[in-house]
Structure formats: structure tokens, C-alpha cells
Simulated assay, not measured.
Amino acid sequence: MAVDVVLIVVAGTFAVVSGMNDGGALLATGLKLPSVRPATGILTLVVLVAFVPLVSHKVALAFVTRLGSFDGPGGKQAMAIAVVAALTVVTVLSNRGRPTSLTLAIVGGLTGAGLGWGLPVSWGYVALVLTVGLFSPLVGGVAAWFVTRLLLALTSSRGLRHWHVAGFALQCVAYAANDGQKMLAVFMIALGFSGAAAPYTLLVAGLFGVGALYGLPKAGRTLSREIIASRPLHGVAAELASGATVTACAALGVPVSMTQSIAGGLIGAGVTTGGGRVRWYAAVKIVVAWLLTLPASALLAGLAAFLIKGAST
């Protein structure tokens, strides 16, 4: 019973932190366009995070069953350890000025906790997730390069607003169908359900919205100002490119980080209009944080799970 209570608290905290970390990043790319107000954007995100999993929650199930067997004996303890480890690593890196991917952190945490607790871990699927995670920023960047050139040829500054609305909507759907479901996965283990009933998805979405409201100023500033000296065109191109990339991964049931895809999209769009717009020192700082996140989370979770299981037996 104590484990259940702890995991429910951890799951709620994780959803709030996901909103703080991911919500601002999703809104950041369009802050220079008035087409989607921040309040409207957060509301859109909350609604989609609540309702898209009712249509498809393949990625949530992948977090629970394909990385390791977290729906069996010891799964709740390992999941709690994985989430705490992921939050710890993300917090430490963020406080050191190295914003990172919460999705990478939870994948690392789940892998490490599974190993430390002695649960079966699917190395083939872990390798697939790592491969997709490595290439998603690159794919997002290449896609943004093409989208930027297309927008330059097809639209005016006034028409860009309509593309922004479409791009933001696509990006939100992609997030809700993919790495946004990491929150639902934790609640699946905490509350012991396997589907995606509306009461659970509404709970996740509400907690996510609280975090997004709180974290918008800081998270939004990181992507929209630090990576490139952005213009509205860059943000719209990054939205369309990252939305398409992450949606494709969701169709395959493979978790991928939206923040990574957005960052890659911003760099690709910046290079298209002149590489001097890209602040490469900031881009390198973020990439280094990505490289540290998964192994650090896996190591911390694996050690904690091994020690806690040993102490309890």
C-alpha cells in the first residue's frame, strides 16, 4: 500500500514537471507570432493530451511493456525509482544551465531500474529507442530546411500566421500521441490500469497544464532565444518539421523527444537562412546534456534499484 501511495505521488509530480519542461518548449517556437496566444496554446495542449490517448496510446504501452516488464511483480517499485532518477537528473542538469529531454531521462531511468531490480529488459527495443532518439533531431533539422525553403517560396509574412496555426496544431497532436504519453505510462503502473480511460487521461492532462503554466517563461526562453536568433519563419518551420517527425515515430510506437525534434528543427531552419543565426555554443551545450541524460539516469536508477531491492530482501 505504501508503494502505491508513493508511486501515485511520484506520478503526479512527474506529470507536473513534464508540463514545466515540455509545455514551454512546445509554445516557444511561435512566441513571436500572435496567431496562438500562450493561454490558447496551453489549453490546446491540455485538451489534446487528454483526448489523443483515447484514440491511440501505443507509446504509453511501449514505456510500460516494451522497455521492460513494469506491469509485473516489482514493477511499481522499479517504476517509482526510474521516475525519481529521471527527475533528479533533469533537475540537476537544468540547474546547471543544461536543459535536456525528460523523455530521454525516463527511458534511461526505466532501463536502469529494470536492470537493478532484476526485471527483463528488451535490449533490442532500447537500442531502437536510442537510434530513433539520435536521428530525430537530424531528421527534424533536415525537414525544417526543406520546409523553410518551401515557406519562403509560397507564403508572405501575413500568410505565415496560418501556417503557424497548422504547425502548432500538428506539433501538439504529435506530442500527445508520442512522448506526452510517458506521463500516462507512469499512472498506468501507479493505478494498475492498462487502457486509457478518460478519467485517467484528464488527470494527466490537468497536472500537465499546471506545470506548463508555471514553466512557460523559462522553458520557452531556452529554445526560442538561446539556440538561434529566431524569426517567425524559423519557429513555424520547426513546428511543422518536428510535428511531422514525431507523428511518424508515434505511428511506429517508438518514444521520441519532442524537445529534441524542435531543437533540431530550429537549427535546420536557421541554417537555411544563414548559419550565423544559429548560436552553436548553446546548441552544443544542449547536445551534451542530451548525451549525459540517458546514461546518468540509467546509472542512478540501476544503482538505487539494486540497493533498495537488496535492503528489502
Rank of each mutant, 00 (worst) to 15 (best):
residue 55 V to A: 15
residue 148 T to Y: 09
residue 289 A to Y: 09
residue 232 P to A: 08
residue 8 I to H: 06
residue 38 P to K: 10
residue 46 V to Y: 01
residue 79 M to H: 07
residue 221 R to D: 12
residue 98 R to W: 12
residue 303 L to A: 03
residue 234 H to V: 01
residue 311 A to H: 14
residue 148 T to R: 02
residue 270 G to M: 09
residue 177 A to P: 04
residue 109 G to H: 00
residue 252 L to F: 10
residue 199 P to T: 11
residue 276 G to A: 12
residue 234 H to L: 07
residue 226 E to F: 01
residue 143 A to L: 15
residue 294 L to T: 08
residue 151 L to G: 04
residue 311 A to V: 13
residue 117 W to I: 05
residue 48 L to K: 09
residue 112 G to A: 02
residue 164 H to Q: 11
residue 143 A to Q: 11
residue 218 K to R: 13
residue 63 F to D: 03
residue 277 R to C: 05
residue 175 Y to I: 03
residue 283 A to E: 03
residue 68 G to M: 01
residue 171 Q to M: 12
residue 182 K to P: 09
residue 128 L to I: 00
residue 196 A to N: 05
residue 256 V to Y: 08
residue 83 V to S: 01
residue 235 G to T: 05
residue 89 V to Y: 01
residue 298 A to M: 01
residue 47 V to M: 03
residue 110 L to K: 00
residue 27 L to W: 09
residue 209 G to M: 05
residue 276 G to V: 10
residue 199 P to V: 02
residue 28 A to H: 06
residue 59 V to E: 06
residue 23 G to Y: 11
residue 168 F to A: 13
residue 127 A to S: 04
residue 78 A to N: 09
residue 217 P to K: 08
residue 174 A to T: 13
residue 308 I to V: 15
residue 224 S to M: 03
residue 235 G to E: 02
residue 234 H to P: 06
residue 306 F to W: 14
residue 313 T to S: 13
residue 146 F to W: 15
residue 94 S to I: 08
residue 274 G to P: 12
residue 52 V to E: 13
residue 213 L to E: 14
residue 78 A to E: 05
residue 225 R to F: 02
residue 126 V to S: 04
residue 200 Y to F: 10
residue 178 N to G: 05
residue 281 Y to S: 15
residue 246 V to A: 07
residue 159 G to Y: 08
residue 21 N to Q: 15
residue 289 A to Q: 11
residue 207 L to A: 06
residue 104 L to C: 04
residue 89 V to L: 02
residue 11 A to Q: 08
residue 140 G to L: 07
residue 118 G to Y: 10
residue 271 V to L: 15
residue 111 T to Y: 00
residue 190 A to V: 07
residue 140 G to A: 10
residue 111 T to D: 00
residue 117 W to E: 07
residue 237 A to H: 10
residue 294 L to M: 13
residue 169 A to G: 07
residue 3 V to P: 07
residue 104 L to S: 04
residue 259 T to L: 06
residue 102 L to S: 06
residue 229 A to W: 00
residue 281 Y to G: 14
residue 306 F to L: 10
residue 248 A to V: 06
residue 64 V to M: 11
residue 173 V to W: 15
residue 211 G to M: 14
residue 134 L to E: 04
residue 13 T to C: 09
residue 237 A to W: 08
residue 5 V to Y: 09
residue 264 G to Q: 05
residue 216 L to E: 14
residue 291 L to Q: 00
residue 301 A to K: 00
residue 74 G to Q: 12
residue 110 L to E: 01
residue 282 A to R: 13
residue 312 S to E: 10
residue 310 G to C: 11
residue 116 G to P: 08
residue 254 V to N: 02
